[in-house]
Design a protein around this nucleic acid. Structure first.
Length: 397
DNA sequence: TCTGGGGTCCTAGGACCC
DNA sequence: TCTGGGGTCCTAGGACCC
């Protein structure tokens, strides 16, 4: 049976959701209709555009550019801060609304998901009518618009939802690929980013049509194993199933851009403690342990680099994460000032068999376990700011 | 008073083992 | 004495996505 897959994508998600929030809280006008962006905090050097309204987009403002540059394009631009918790809430409401119709929903990010319509088509009828219905229902009950792409596989549904915005429904059935997808620029193909696009252009492959008809052995020389899947994508071939099982986290990480460039690694120690607590708490909430601890730095030249340590036994202890990250930082430090630091936990596992080492003191471990448990409970009860480790609070004084 | 943060997947190269 | 080759694990970095 031919599959029918939908891709549902929130229009200007962060900006729309903040607009909804403001309207719900007595704001008199809708920022979606004005020159507005969601932006990071410029004081702490996070001043980039995270989402923009349609009017702002029309002036050439793009996601990722600095607010400084955006303001040059639009003198009256208004910026609003991120409201991440509210975004998460809206995201959950959207997915739950869709789950009323089928459980075959795969969230792809906070603001988009795939829906497999194949099995429920007999029940709900024509897919375009259904798309119109849920589009309206989302707007009426949640207050924001979505784009919906309809196709025979995930890739084409994704491509279709991107065709024109906002509040649109597009189809890209297999029979429409030639007409609707092949004329597009090769950089518009999902999976082709800036680097690959530039390489393809150099080879005189400019449109998706060109890529669809490129010679695989020729492309292999430049893209190795990526060549095959690139050509398949350009032909609209994709067999990935819609996976409704919640995707297991492969790793978790947090990073912070520092409000000034840091020249001494000692100054980064309390950042590492802060980050260790953050990722540690998230890991424990997942009931997982991590084998690999990674420290990431971005230097003042914007070059990112990382070092990692694989532990003999996986951990979920803040203190062990912190101590390990200190060790890694000291190893990797090369006296180049940095503007960002992060910690990632990788190779997560649910259970662990403790491998005793003669160098370890098991009693110490259980003390730290108890400490983390108490801290986590307090944080859950009273919020994240209730407790700061002594090292952090002493610094503040 | 320039340039976020959270992820995934892939690859190259080195170490190590047989 | 003149140099194998396969396989796996690990690390670092790159590309891509939202």
């Amino acid at each position: 049976m031919e599959r029918v897959i939908m891709h549902i994508d929130v229009n200007n998600a962060f900006l729309s959701w903040t607009a909804v929030y403001l309207l719900n809280n007595g704001y008199k006008y809708d920022i979606r209709n004005s020159y507005a962006v969601i932006g990071g905090d410029e004081q702490s050097r996070r001043g980039v555009v995270l989402a923009k309204s349609t009017p702002a987009k029309k002036l050439g403002i793009v996601t990722g550019e600095t607010l400084y540059s955006a303001r040059k394009k639009c003198k009256v631009l208004k910026t609003y801060p991120m409201q991440y918790d509210f975004y998460k809430e809206m995201s959950q409401k959207l997915f739950n609304l869709l789950r009323q119709y089928t459980s075959d929903i795969e969230p792809a990010s906070i603001d988009e998901c795939y829906l497999d319509y194949t099995k429920v088509k007999r029940m709900y009828g024509d897919e375009i009518e259904f798309a119109k219905k849920i589009q309206k229902e989302i707007f009426d009950t949640l207050g924001f618009t979505v784009n919906i792409g309809i196709a025979n596989n995930k890739l084409c549904a994704k491509m279709a939802s991107d065709f024109s915005k906002p509040n649109k429904i597009h189809t890209l059935y297999d029979s429409e690929i030639e007409e609707k997808m092949w004329p597009l620029d090769v950089g518009d193909l999902f999976g082709i980013g800036k680097q690959t696009k530039a390489k393809l252009k150099n080879l005189n492959i400019n449109t998706i049509y060109d890529l669809a008809h490129a010679d695989q052995t020729f492309l292999y020389k430049y893209f190795k194993n990526q060549a095959k899947s690139m050509i398949e994508s350009a032909n609209g071939i994709n067999n990935d199933p819609v996976n409704s099982n919640p995707i297991e986290n492969k790793g978790i990480g947090n990073e912070i851009t520092l409000d000034h460039d840091v020249y001494n690694k000692e100054e980064l120690y309390d950042k590492l403690l802060f980050l260790s607590e953050k990722v540690g708490l998230r890991l424990r909430n997942l009931n997982k342990y991590a084998y690999v601890i990674v420290v990431v730095l971005k230097d003042v030249y914007f070059k990112r680099y990382s070092h990692q340590i694989k532990l003999l036994n996986p951990t979920n202890l803040t203190n062990e994460i912190y101590q390990t990250s200190l060790k890694i930082l000291n190893e990797m430090w090369k006296d180049i000032p940095v503007r960002l630091i992060g910690i990632r936990l990788d190779n997560l596992t649910e259970n662990f068999n403790y491998q005793a080492s003669i160098f370890e003191n098991i009693e110490d471990k259980s003390d730290f376990e108890k400490l983390d448990k108490v801290v986590d409970e307090l944080k859950t009860k009273y919020g994240n700011n209730i407790l700061k480790k002594a090292a952090l609070s002493n610094k503040k004084k």
